[in-house]
Design a protein around this nucleic acid. Structure first.
Lengths: 343, 343
DNA sequence: CTGTTAGCGCATTCAG
DNA sequence: CTGAATGCGCTAACAG
């Protein structure tokens, strides 16, 4: 009976190459001071043994985990799911692993728990997609407990609630302004709004941008209808809107809710864009193929993911906490769900 | 100048509680043989110091990382993004962290690289959402390199290519059969199909189920149109289908492609379901709000995520490699995009 | 340029 | 029921 098959360790490589395990370590870490002939021998031994470094041991010795944590809430939403993808890509390119912790619910204990899990894993930094102001309070508290500052980036967070945390997001207010002014320019006397949940800063910012654009144009500001980002909630709001003949233009907080509004209008016999114009937000890949193709505000999720990762890596490398907002400019994509007001 | 703030280690807790670090370890790991009074003292000390165990050290000592790896490809697709979420939930409940590694592309080197990254992290098991047969060959090779069998679960993999890997998936062929027979029962003389990429086993299984149902009914099997899961590709296929007046029923490989088909039909003036019936696959949350509300095959993604995690945990715990297919039964959800053939 | 010596924080023997 | 010793695999000083 021969020895148990155990993954080869550094010492095995060293033995085979006839050097000390330290030299192997140097080769692994690209330390300059290794004779190239020695290096070649070590590399050959590594290949021969199919050596794989043990991250746990390295983490223990260096106190660096090479891992960043991602706090998510609902990755089934179009935006967040796209971000997860973009962040993973960016992390890999920067040499980091990504570990996910999703918050069960949108409240303080859930987010605190998610952060605790991540910290327990000794992540070097945290990117969060958790959207709630209350959650940010929890995050803030958690951070205060941490001896060294944990590098962190918040995507779509409430900057007022957490000014000390750098944030990356699309300029929601500007995007909402784009959409609203587009509708106003088309001759609509006012624009109605189906909003996302008020707990989400994105939702509040879009609402604020919509309202500001209306006020700037001297137009009345109707009550916004509440939604939860889902097509279902958009449909419910759309039914209410469709019942009011005065409604001719609707700006939706996201594309999914716009889908619901489109459906409700269709059922009520109100043609889009003939009788009412509809604008969404996000520009999901399906938007051009809806009925009618949806005019919407595009945000570049991949770019946002890359920027937040870059910001995080910078903080990790320099050890200095960044702050401030990093906003990317949205574009209005005009398709067929909007048209001039017909008298 | 006082000492550097370093996270409290087990020894600090031990010191404060007046016990050995060993006793602290026992308390942390719920070892039974600790006097409850001692345990209380230790717990108090842990709380006082806000002690957090160091996973790296534990991993090093136990050779268990408490982490499962997730190989993904495109998490922006509805199905995969939902799975990621379900898997994370299930993993947390089972006491595991989840680390993501996405394959850059659908080929052997990319998947091998993703697996290498995961193994380097010493994950205790791997769940993969990577769909390609070729990728599975790579995975198979990687596995052969591993001294001990790495517990693994493939979601939606090609069972023929990798019979030794347990797989979890919806019964795609059955779902396609449901859809196709529904259309046949409605009087359609044949059913056309917009297929997903042939590299995806799901796509092939759905195509096979569609074909089998047609053949069983003694109906002609038209050439399937190629798609890539996107609404854009569905639209392209839909234009071709709309140009052929003989087409009265279309089964799409997923809902997103169905959206494109719906649009193409509308543009061509072919009413759905008046002139042509359309069925999707997945039942995405927006399906009920499309124009018209989409008849589709529902799969329970959350359930699939839970099952695969359960299977993985079982393998990790027992150390025995499972095999075989674990299929969940899909449901047909009939909405308004299908109707009886009108002569 | 290379080897030696110490830990990193924890769990796992084995003694008491 | 509790403590002391040992090592997990690696990096970081320090020597040579």
């Amino acid at each position: 009976m021969h020895s148990v098959r155990r993954p080869p360790a550094m010492r095995d490589v060293a033995h085979l190459a006839g050097v000390s395990h330290q030299t192997v370590s140097r080769v692994v870490n690209d330390h300059p001071s290794v004779r190239s002939e020695t290096r070649a021998r070590v590399l050959a031994a590594m290949r021969a043994l199919d050596y794989q470094p043990n991250v746990a041991a390295r983490t223990l010795a260096t106190n660096r985990s090479q891992t960043v944590g991602l706090v998510t809430f609902d990755t089934t939403l179009f935006g967040p799911s796209f971000m997860v993808h973009a962040i993973e890509r960016a992390a890999r390119e920067a040499g980091y692993f990504v570990s996910i912790a999703s918050a069960r619910e949108l409240n303080v204990p859930s987010v605190t728990e998610a952060i605790r899990r991540l910290r327990e894993q000794a992540v070097e930094g945290i990117i969060t997609l958790a959207p709630v102001a209350a959650a940010w309070t929890a995050l803030g508290r958690s951070l205060l407990d941490v001896p060294a500052h944990v590098p962190i980036v918040g995507m779509g967070i409430d900057v007022h609630a957490m000014p000390e945390v750098p944030m990356v997001a699309v300029d929601n207010a500007a995007g909402a302004g784009l959409a609203t002014r587009h509708l106003i320019a088309l001759g609509h006397r006012t624009v109605h709004h189906v909003a996302g949940p008020p707990e989400w800063p994105e939702a509040r910012e879009r609402m604020a941008g919509w309202q500001a654009a209306l006020e700037a144009a001297g137009l009345p500001v109707p009550r916004a209808l509440p939604g939860d980002w889902s097509a279902r909630s958009g449909y419910a709001a759309g039914r209410a809107l469709a019942a009011d003949p005065a409604v001719t233009a609707v700006f939706c907080g996201n594309d999914q809710m716009a889908i619901g509004v489109l459906r409700a209008m269709h059922e009520a016999g109100r043609a889009v864009p003939g009788a009412v114009s509809v604008v969404g937000f996000d520009d999901m890949p399906e938007a051009p193929y809806l009925q009618p193709p949806l005019t919407t505000v595009r945000q570049d999720f991949a770019e946002l993911g890359r920027r937040s990762m870059h910001l995080l890596v910078t903080q990790i490398a320099t050890g200095v906490r960044q702050t401030g907002q990093h906003r990317s400019a949205p574009d209005l994509v005009v398709r067929e769900s909007t048209s001039a007001l017909a008298f």
